[in-house]
Design a protein around this nucleic acid. Structure first.
Lengths: 196, 196
DNA sequence: CCGCTCATGTAACTGGTTACATGATTTA
DNA sequence: TAAATCATGTAACCAGTTACATGAGCGG
């Protein structure tokens, strides 16, 4: 039964100031850089308002994260009073700037360049488990929904982001990935036989 | 200081047998379906051998997950002896089959259809934080690395997967997403000015 | 006999999540 | 003045991760 006699294990991992930032941390460094000093709440708002669902912008993620950045010396908190009310503005330090640049790379770990994860693609691999009719429903519904997201991304492109060329590129990237997905779904429909 | 008087919170979430499976759980259900009864180690191998980096196939993930599936009645363990050695073969139950079908959808939660997360794209949004020369290096390196992954995916396509049309579609999907990324990176290079 | 793969786990930790509590300020 | 938003957190939980421990069976 594998009694595990010894004193147990667990990785050290240490979270030392030298360890590479997570994706969310890098992202927050970027936000601090482009917005300048702002409150944790403002950082949350960026995620809350963005249509991307990868991060919720939950307080439970953002507040501890900012505290982490502070104790690693990547950000510092300026106690600022707006009116009577105290607010903590987080600003990027020089080390924070450097950390952002390092996170941006190169060099970058290899998984960054690899095929991004796609929940739709994973599912298609197991489509053999459901009858052909349901398979067709799956693909048809996917086409419809992806198309819907595509349209809302296109609306974003024509919007405000034309100001910042990098923000525009991000939207274009999202667009490109959705278009590729749509084309691939169409291909799947043809290959699996749209009718019958 | 927000003392949080009450008896604390935390979501119930409950992990009841009715709750939707995670992506990894759905994936494992799929593996159990397509391979038939197999050991936890065999399930791990699938992730270990696959080039996708989203899941490590670590024992610490797979063994508890299979135990979870078992206690939810989605899989059952067959005690089997190969030679003198005892092995636990996990097999999909009828409920497991149904769970797989439900995970495959439709219906599916909306985030499934949305823009998949891309660590490269996130970084491009903050490329303004580094000097133009480094920006070009970033893009050139990205093109090189993505191209490399593209080639290895193409090699996979010509390989064994031609047997299963769904596995082939998965590879084609990966290919499509890498090609779209590459084209987008080229576009980025043009827009940001390849030279100067 | 050595080392490799097969095989089964466990322990510590981590970076997220939801859900709550609290209160000031602004706006309808 | 009621409701929304701004603002700051905490507690419980969860599904992963790395790293270890253990041992059978097999090919050289």
């Amino acid at each position: 039964m594998s009694v595990s006699v010894g004193r147990g294990a667990g990785r050290p991992r240490s979270a030392g100031p030298r360890s590479a930032p997570t994706e969310l941390e890098g992202c927050v460094l970027g936000i601090l850089w482009e917005r300048g000093p702002c409150t944790a709440y403002a950082v949350r708002r960026v995620f809350l308002d963005s249509p991307s669902p990868y991060w919720s912008g939950s307080a439970g993620a953002v507040y501890p994260l900012l505290a982490r950045l502070e104790e690693r010396g990547l950000a510092r908190a300026l106690e600022s009073a707006s009116g009577r009310r105290a607010r903590r503005l987080f600003a990027l330090t020089t080390r924070g700037r450097a950390g952002l640049a390092r996170w941006l790379g190169p060099p970058l770990p290899d998984w960054i360049w690899g095929v991004p994860m796609d929940p739709l693609r994973t599912r298609v691999g197991f489509l053999g488990a459901i009858p052909a009719a349901r398979r067709r429903r799956f693909l048809a519904e996917s086409v419809r929904q992806v198309r819907r997201h595509l349209e809302s991304s296109r609306a974003q492109l024509t919007g405000a982001c034309a100001a910042d060329p990098f923000a525009e590129l991000v939207v274009r990237g999202a667009l490109a990935s959705l278009e590729a997905r749509l084309a691939w779904l169409g291909d799947a429909q043809r290959r699996l036989g749209r009718r019958r």
